[in-house]
Design a binder for these strands. Structure first.
Length: 269
DNA sequence: TCGATCCTGTAG
DNA sequence: CTACAGGATCGA
């Protein structure tokens, strides 16, 4: 279910819970989880290693392990990662888990089973994320960068924003929310947005990403509790037929790239 | 750029 | 039953 902000919240939590821990053993419960790597290879490779740090690049979570190895996890649509006190109490939809020292479990829970977990050398891990564009909150993601990138693409701007090779981490929700804040119609070709409007989009992406990370951290700390800011970040997503918070027109849903895009037909021209 | 694919769950 | 799901990749 996660985009960059949720992955970032998970990363932070895992870092606090698992950094410094030793991997006593590893089990892949469903074979395709580590595709194309053999489950047995992972189980053997991970045993005895220490988790030195937990990093993130785009929507990839990267566990830096002793021996220079990297455990890379992509959660795709429904994946989640968390540490539980007793590894024997696995959720029913667990795809893989690590047993950590003290009997704790690092669980890769993924009911829809679309996520992927691989072990790499540092070089392989770098190659696996080499094609990603800049992080929206990094120094590389400037207005000038966005101008150059947008000018090179005729794709509908919503699809442009979701292309991980151009910008890393935006997904279906926050791409739509960023376009709403910048008052841009999602079907506009990226290269037709210029100047001030593109600067607005840049600011919207940065704002939405920042706020969403904040919200994701809070909702992990207090599950089930949705804040005012949460609503603010769901101005259009999944609100088809409901009134736009700004102009009261009905939010519309259109297909783009085989997925749903939500937007306000009055605010976003 | 569309559709199929990888999977399972849930809402209508 | 169908449609759709906060992702990504592939081939036509």
């Amino acid at each position: 279910m996660p985009e960059l902000p949720e992955v970032e919240a998970i990363r932070g939590r895992l870092r606090r819970a698992a950094r410094g821990s030793t991997i006593v053993g590893a089990r892949i419960l469903r074979p395709r989880t580590s595709h194309p790597q053999e489950p047995g290879f992972l189980e053997k490779a991970l045993r005895g290693l220490t988790i030195q740090d937990v990093e993130r690049r785009g929507k990839h979570i990267l566990f830096q392990l002793s021996g220079g190895l990297v455990l890379r996890v992509h959660l795709r649509m429904t994946g989640s990662l968390h540490v539980i006190p007793d590894v024997r109490l696995l959720p029913a939809t667990t795809r893989a888990y690590l047993e950590l020292d003290g009997g704790r479990g690092l669980i890769f829970d993924d009911p829809r089973a679309l996520g992927v977990l691989n072990v790499h050398t540092a070089t392989e891990a770098a190659a696996a994320v080499a094609d990603l564009g800049p992080e929206p909150l990094s120094r590389r993601f400037t207005r000038e960068f966005l101008r150059a990138a947008a000018s090179r693409s005729r794709a509908p701007v919503k699809l442009f924003l979701m292309d991980q090779k151009r910008i890393a981490g935006l997904g279906n929700i926050y791409a739509a929310e960023s376009l709403f804040r910048a008052e841009i119609h999602p079907a506009t070709p990226a290269n037709r947005i210029t100047g001030t409007r593109l600067d607005m989009l840049h600011a919207a992406i940065v704002f939405v990403t920042r706020e969403a990370i904040r919200c994701a951290r809070i909702s992990y700390a207090r599950p089930g509790h949705s804040s005012e800011a949460d609503t603010f970040l769901r101005a259009v997503y999944d609100r088809e037929g409901e009134a736009c918070f700004v102009c009261r027109r009905k939010i519309r849903r259109i297909p783009q790239g085989g997925r749903s895009t939500y937007f306000c037909p009055r605010c976003q021209k």
